[in-house]
Design a binder for these strands. Structure first.
Lengths: 281, 281
DNA sequence: GCAATAGTGTCTTTAAGACATTATGCC
DNA sequence: GGCATAATGTCTTAAAGACACTATTGC
């Protein structure tokens, strides 16, 4: 029996198909991106928004509108089927990049979802979910810069605040919730927070990232003591200026090579195949 | 083109198939199970072994010998393809149960593996790995008790010490390493260790479980203080006897309903779809 | 000087490691 | 009584929260 000529009922009985979906976080949408507000269903455009300078209070993520059944018209996570010759990670990267024209700075597998009722109409779908992170430097320039930068948006790709998501296709709402949990728990023991920021940053910015992710305020003095003790920060020697208060030192992130003395605290799941994604450009 | 009449080359170009594999740990092999030693390739039988009383110093896990290509003859993790109408968890449980005739007390998704070179010969295979845990009470009686309990072993199923595994099929060695990591890191913040033990146990037994998993000794006094402070232990009122030293109090495990006062420390990934598996019998 | 944030110092609480001391059942 | 382990207590150190205080810029 041929794949193409099957009826819907026959499709249901096939072995499950596999696809990859990715929850990609950023502290702000990229300049020029299409924004959507789930409540009003109105779309605006990023760029002149004052939130783009400084740290946004919420996390943003890109979604893709489905153009065919099942769940036609609904918003869904970027993703797609796995070609026979492509790594899971590569499929995640490629589909995400096709949607938002940018490469994330970080990518990590999240969880696999495969409940039988995922898609009642069609062939059963097992989804391997990834989560990704766009840092400040990843958001700057689109990979394929349009000659008219603000005009030709794909109307089926938009950025949403994680606080106000629309009704999602499949069980993608569950996947997003899972990704948020993972992001929150990872900030406790890993260095993901750094990846949201640019090459240099102040301690206040780093603290604000943590506050945005955790959703609670942190004592600035204690945070400073903790952050500096971790050994990941190097002073650049420069300071901020133009503020109407005391200027702050700028720091750079450095992967700690070996701990000064003693065992050193390993990443709680260092073997979980995390990926730092770098542009080849 | 029909599924059944494809050549090997044609199979390679198909969308990946999905399967489930499970790493199942126990502190000792079940009585009557077939044991294998990877080094000597000799198989013995569990039962009279003194290790079966008291806590074993290493972890054990069941493997299944493959009876067809690819990797024919190699040992592999219990598992199999996912039927269209079965949950991922259920597939993991069913295939594990078919292999070892017992239900694990705990099951949790581990990670999904899908490198392109996983199986060079046949259709590409994406494996969703689970890890499971057999507690003392799960090891006692086989689900389908043979009339001749020690005779009819499936020769293609055996238990191995995690320290001395044979060469495994596919990338299953990597999966086992992953599962060991997860088990170790989970004992730090969750209550998995309890699940290796029976209904009641002494603090020394609980400590020995942690020592076996972590591979290092723990100060008995400090461990006692910590364990009791977690609020998961209830005295049964009974004591051990027959030892030639001071008898120890017996404790029972209790899921902490709410913390006595304050927020309470959540499980670091409470939403990771863990499963407590109980027999319906 | 004032506003506002950067950065420092100190006190307290809590958790954990090291280790000495007492308790108890069995021989 | 002596052995072996259970159970308790004490001292020390490290980390983290609370919070007062000082420093430095722009206005």
């Amino acid at each position: 029996m041929s794949y193409g000529t099957m009826s819907v009922d026959e499709r249901r009985l096939l072995p499950p198909a596999v696809a990859v979906s990715t929850v990609a976080f950023a502290l702000r949408p990229p300049v020029g991106a299409r924004l959507e507000d789930a409540a009003s269903e109105a779309s605006i455009e990023a760029g002149t928004d004052p939130r783009n300078r400084g740290t946004a209070p919420t996390l943003w993520l890109p979604l893709v509108r489905r153009t065919r059944p099942p769940f036609e018209g609904r918003w869904a996570l970027p993703g797609g089927p796995i070609p026979w010759d492509e790594t899971l990670v590569d499929t995640a990267l490629r589909t995400l990049q096709d949607a938002v024209m940018r490469r994330p700075g970080y990518l990590e597998q999240l969880y696999s979802f495969g409940a039988v009722e995922r898609s009642a109409e069609a062939q059963r779908l097992v989804t391997i979910a990834y989560w990704a992170l766009f840092g400040e430097r990843d958001l700057s320039a689109p990979l394929r810069p349009d000659s008219e930068p603000s005009a030709t948006h794909d109307p089926n790709v938009a950025w949403f605040s994680a606080d106000a998501l629309p009704k999602l296709a499949f069980d993608h709402a569950e996947i997003v919730a899972h990704a948020l949990d993972r992001l929150r728990s990872k900030t406790a023991y890993s260095t993901v927070a750094f990846r949201f920021l640019g090459d240099s940053f102040t301690l206040a910015q780093l603290r604000e990232v943590r506050e945005a992710i955790l959703g609670e305020t942190i004592d600035a003095a204690n945070f400073r003591r903790y952050a500096l003790s971790q050994g990941h920060l190097v002073e650049t020697g420069e300071k901020t200026s133009g503020t109407r208060h005391r200027p702050a030192k700028l720091y750079r992130f450095r992967e700690r090579s070996t701990s000064p003395h003693g065992e050193g605290t390993e990443d709680a799941d260092a073997n979980n195949a995390q990926h730092t994604v770098r542009n080849s450009a």
